[in-house]
């Protein structure tokens, strides 16, 4: 009997292997190898592809610590990540609540589709659409002047708010989706029980609904914060001169200055900082979740 069980689980593993292999092969080829190469690059003086002589060095990392500019940019990017995440919570959480608890059936599907829609459009197209909306004499400007009796001049283009708007638009679906999943899992009878005990809607939100949907909020925040801190496309196109962030500097090293070793080093410093932040936050988040 025991032998059969062992054979059974071994054959289970054997049949699971072909299913696991593609994913792990892909992860190895697509992520682990390039990332290892980048770690290697980050300790080099020169890019080996140029044919010039190169040697190992720690200078690339030292550059970060010796120049205040990188610190300033990193802090600006962290602030950007924090602000975008907060706006995504403010905008995404109520939407997720309405989707999970108010709409039912077909209307829910339709609204869900509208939330997912940004995912299906090209990122660059999305950003340039915002550029058309936000610039002086653009769609927002024209529309507001058509409605308002007095003349106003909205020129959000190439500003910090424009970067925020673009990033929030790109990332808010993550918050809606993760929060929707946890909110939907909250049994309606819990809300009814709370109301039968005399709790107002606000009290229910504060004491039952938000605590129970915290895992979704945390997951959404992590999914948004990390890429936003390293983002470069939205800051560059919508931020213009004001859109210099840590991510755009890294991009510059790769595509403009061709200083790959410095770009790689800056990337890994960002990775380390983000990991430290998540590690520090996780006990707190675990407690509230």
């Amino acid at each position: 009997m025991a032998g059969q069980v062992v054979t059974g689980s071994r054959s289970g593993l054997r049949s699971a292997l072909p299913l696991l292999l593609p994913a792990y092969l892909w992860l190895t080829v697509a992520i682990f190898l390039p990332l290892s190469a980048m770690v290697f690059f980050s300790f080099m003086t020169e890019l080996p592809l140029s044919g010039r002589a190169w040697s190992f060095t720690l200078d690339n990392y030292a550059t970060f610590f010796s120049q205040g500019l990188y610190w300033t940019l990193l802090l600006a990017s962290l602030r950007l990540g924090l602000e975008v995440t907060l706006w995504c919570v403010v905008i995404g959480y109520p939407a997720a609540y309405v989707l999970a608890k108010v709409f039912r059936g077909r209307s829910r599907e339709a609204i869900f589709l509208l939330v997912i829609l940004p995912f299906w459009s090209n990122g660059l197209v999305r950003i340039f659409s915002w550029a058309m909306v936000l610039r002086e004499g653009g769609i927002l400007d024209t529309a507001l002047n058509a409605v308002l009796p007095f003349k106003i001049n909205i020129d959000l283009m190439y500003s910090y708010p424009a970067v925020i708007i673009g990033l929030v638009h790109s990332y808010v679906p993550y918050m809606v989706l993760t929060c929707y999943l946890t909110l939907q899992a909250i049994d309606d009878s819990l809300i009814e029980a709370g109301r039968s005990l005399g709790a107002s809607r606000l009290q229910m939100l504060k004491r039952v609904i938000i605590p129970l949907s915290m895992p979704g909020l945390v997951a959404g925040a992590a999914l948004i914060f990390v890429p936003v801190v390293g983002s470069f496309m939205e800051p560059r196109i919508l931020g213009g001169r004001t859109g210099t962030f840590y991510g755009t500097v890294i991009e510059d090293q790769f595509v403009a200055v061709f200083n790959w070793p410095l770009g790689a080093a800056l990337s890994f410093i960002l990775l380390a900082v983000v990991l430290v932040i998540l590690a520090l936050a996780s006990p707190v988040l675990k407690r509230v979740a």
């Binding site: 009878s189 009814e192 029980a193 709370g194 709790a199 039952v208």
Partner: peptide
């Protein structure tokens, strides 16, 4: 319902999973 001063027991009990037993009872 929140103004009717009724007590209700649900089929699936509907206890708040994020609270202790005492906090559940204390809620109202």
């Amino acid at each position: 319902v929140e103004k009717r001063r009724i007590g209700m027991v649900f089929q699936n009990y509907a206890l708040f999973p994020n609270m202790s037993v005492a906090d559940n009872v204390a809620f109202g």
